[in-house]
Design a protein around this nucleic acid. Structure first.
Lengths: 203, 203
DNA sequence: CCGCTTGCTGACTCGTCGGTCATCAAGTAT
DNA sequence: ATACTTGATGACCGACGAGTCAGCAAGCGG
């Protein structure tokens, strides 16, 4: 009797599937504590196959981080640049709702991985810096500038460090990474911060 | 010929010395990547001795975190409670200068360790939460309350989440953990935040 | 000086896990 | 059908590092 085939060949999909499984595994146990075997099992694949597509564990790690990051940042930045809302509306609308989502999103996991493994993967940190941080901060800076040009913000807003928008979001991310279940009204934190910034810099 | 003794017995000092060495090692390489042998060599001691004082690697880890934490937090909180400065003076003086120091201090290292290893050491997280976070936030809350009672702050300040004071500090810590060498004027960040808070809540 | 306690050593064990490779079998071309 | 390519498997290897333990010697009490 012929029976089911033991496996199908799916050259195209495997790398992505393995990367997804790896992300899930890293998210749960961290990089060091994750075995390639775990990743393979999660992906429904043998350990050997993982090594066909990713030469080393480190390779896989880098692929995973780039993967997760690239997918998200572009979308958001595109939003900022093309939106037709007034500055205040944009801040209270799309920006705030984005910030609220981040602490529970895969981005938070990537930050955990960067904090713990970053020092041993400098090129990965560089990649992240260029593709996320610089571009993200740049977008905020341009946004402020546009606001000033339109007369919605005072000139002093130009001296503001864009980081100040993101500080409560960062705290919220770390809080959830460490104290996952302990309550903290992170939404309120971010709203208060944006309120303060607007109060201070609105024309 | 008698020669030097090969070692001295120093039962009292060993545990602390080993914990210090372990902290240095964890700070440099993280928990998982640090070998007990490294710790021992740093402490000028044999691997076996480490196991005399700490049953397992995890034990050592917990001892290290508690050790570093306990030493610092009390001092600061004591400061807040006993200071005779006005609220604004205190914020712009001792509080600001404390916050400036943190990102380069061992506390930052502890945060890295908690972010990466926390999920696997829930009791350690609980310990940290009770002894650092709750007490720290409590101190800030009492400080605000005192300011309101003295008429230095408006009543609305009571609704403020204390976390908002610390958000830029948190961002600075993470920034330095990940991007150690990349420039960021973290002092300015924290100052701006305190300026905003004062502008908003000063009576 | 001697003998006993115990702080301390370091060679060893043993499980684990990253990485390899001989082999198999799914799919394809002829 | 048959031969061939290559995606996929899983047993295996080697190193590495946590934890053990038999024994050594510092230093104290008599």
């Amino acid at each position: 009797m012929p029976g089911e085939p033991k496996y199908q060949r799916r050259k195209e999909d495997r790398p992505q599937e393995i990367a997804d499984a790896a992300f899930a595994a890293f998210a749960e146990n961290g990089y060091a504590a994750t075995r390639i075997d775990d990743v393979a099992r999660r992906a429904g694949v043998s350990k050997g196959l993982t090594y066909l597509y990713y030469k080393t564990k480190e390779d896989l790690f880098k692929a995973v981080v780039k993967n997760v990051v690239v997918r998200r940042v572009d979308a958001l930045i595109g939003d900022v640049e093309t939106s037709t809302l007034s500055s205040e509306e944009f801040i209270r609308g799309p920006l705030l709702s984005f910030m609220k989502k981040v602490p529970g999103s895969p981005i938070a996991i990537v930050i955990r991985l960067l904090v713990s493994e970053g020092p041993r993967h400098p090129d990965l940190v560089a990649y992240y810096y260029e593709n996320v941080v610089e571009r993200g901060l740049g977008a905020i800076r341009r946004f402020i500038q546009r606001g000033v040009e339109r007369g919605e913000f005072r000139r002093e807003a130009l001296d503001l460090q864009p980081h100040l928008f993101l500080a409560p979001m960062m705290l919220s991310i770390i809080w959830r990474l460490i104290f996952s279940d302990r309550p903290l009204d992170t939404d309120d934190l971010m709203e208060s911060q944006l309120d303060m910034l607007l109060a201070q810099f609105k024309a």
